[in-house]
Nucleic acid binder design. Structure first.
Lengths: 236, 236
DNA sequence: GAGTGGTCTAGACCACAGC
DNA sequence: CTGTGGTCTAGACCACTCA
């Protein structure tokens, strides 16, 4: 045996997703159907799906079927911001959008978006508040204007999760995102908004958002109060 | 069916480990043996072990058997410190120990160790250097003196990984560790050592190390240059 | 009731380790 | 050679969903 059969099945499903034959939200063929079509036993198909489910590429729903997962921004490192009343429970962060405009991309931003310097972009600035309406973080987002034409329109209300509106209004399919976490210190503007002193520590989160064809459609920098952030993990 | 059989098997193995009947490094009974003793099929035992293996609590070795994992500090968030030459590849960090002493525990440290204030502790300060011998981080460790009596002895050479020596010399079994990541800024001393300016951003890593009986034996604070740290993740 | 995934069984054969 | 885990099969029954 060269390549395990369940690996073959796994690849088969994985490729269907990557090539766009199966898109997030789709129902994939049933286990028995796959086993017939690929001439393997149901157990082998199950093993392949087990792996993809563990990877969160698929999810099963008993009685209904197996679906391709939608991207889940609840997995963002963002969720480690803000712990309500020191009790440890996480709270929702509510966002406002005080400023947005259309502009020509600064070269450093364009580098991250992998477009030419000066390409038209839409810049959005948002502030995140905790449950007590205290500002916790500042988000700066740059979108490719050709992808989300009109997002700068002040009439357009922006929900906390930008991606829902982007997918719906502009027919863009968001596939995945990459995040990098590091630290920074507060400059005057940031300190003012967050109500802290200049030079206080910040957690900085950099994100690139990828749509279909794997083009990068957004670059985002989130800066938040370090005392409102803690990423916990266990080693064993 | 109330509780799936494979869950029962899973619990069975898990409890043997948690109660110390099986310790890290041990060979657990073979799959067929477990299936006989517990009156379930081999497939069911395999499913249980699959889960525990995915959790990294066990690992299998074909032809030999299944073992209980040793704690793996390579999973520490610490590994996201230092990226050699901006090329992206991670480098080893070499550590020196300029200072260690025995002291009475400050109340805040004792709180983390869950011992009474004033309990004898051994304090160790270490500096981490990258491949070019530039200081990248500072580590402050507080150990319970009653557990590692003599660790403050200057004659005793400390390897980069403290835990190996602790397990060997003091017959302590390290079970797990908890880490929390956040940000801080450099005070005068830290800035001096790391060769940066006062007020520059730092990544701060807090760790508690747990030994058998789940007692906490070490509290550690690592501060490193933010520009030498990046924790990357993918969302989908 | 028909179709889906969820659990469980019993047995086959292969690949690897160690004597 | 024996015993281990690794792969694969075929079939049973259960629990859930939806028409």
């Amino acid at each position: 045996m060269q390549r395990p059969l369940y690996k073959v099945v796994e690849e088969f499903i994985r490729e269907h997703i990557e090539l766009g034959k199966l898109v997030p939200g789709d129902l994939i063929p049933s286990e028995s159907r796959l086993s017939q079509e690929l001439n393997v036993s149901v157990g082998t198909v199950r093993k392949a799906i087990d792996i993809l489910e563990k990877e969160k590429l698929l999810f099963r729903h008993q009685g209904k079927g197996t679906y391709v997962s939608r991207i889940d921004f609840d997995n963002s490192l963002f969720r480690f911001f803000s712990y309500g009343t020191a009790s440890g429970e996480s709270t929702r962060i509510h966002k406002e959008t005080p400023y947005r405009t259309r502009l020509e991309g600064p070269s450093e931003i364009c580098r991250h978006l992998k477009v030419n310097p000066g390409t038209p972009l839409i810049y959005i600035e948002r502030i995140g508040y905790d449950e007590e309406e205290l500002p916790v973080l500042i988000e700066k987002c740059w979108w490719r204007a050709d992808v989300v034409e009109g997002l700068e329109d002040k009439e357009l209300h922006l929900p906390d999760l930008l991606y829902a509106i982007v997918e719906e209004k502009f027919d863009v399919r968001i596939i995945r995102a990459e995040e990098t976490l590091t630290a920074d210190i507060a400059d005057k503007e940031t300190a003012n908004i967050l109500g802290i002193k200049i030079g206080e520590p910040l957690v900085m989160l950099l994100r690139t958002t990828h749509a279909n064809n794997d083009r990068i459609i957004e670059y985002r920098v989130t800066r938040g109060r370090a005392d409102r952030f803690s990423y916990k993990t266990e080693i064993r």
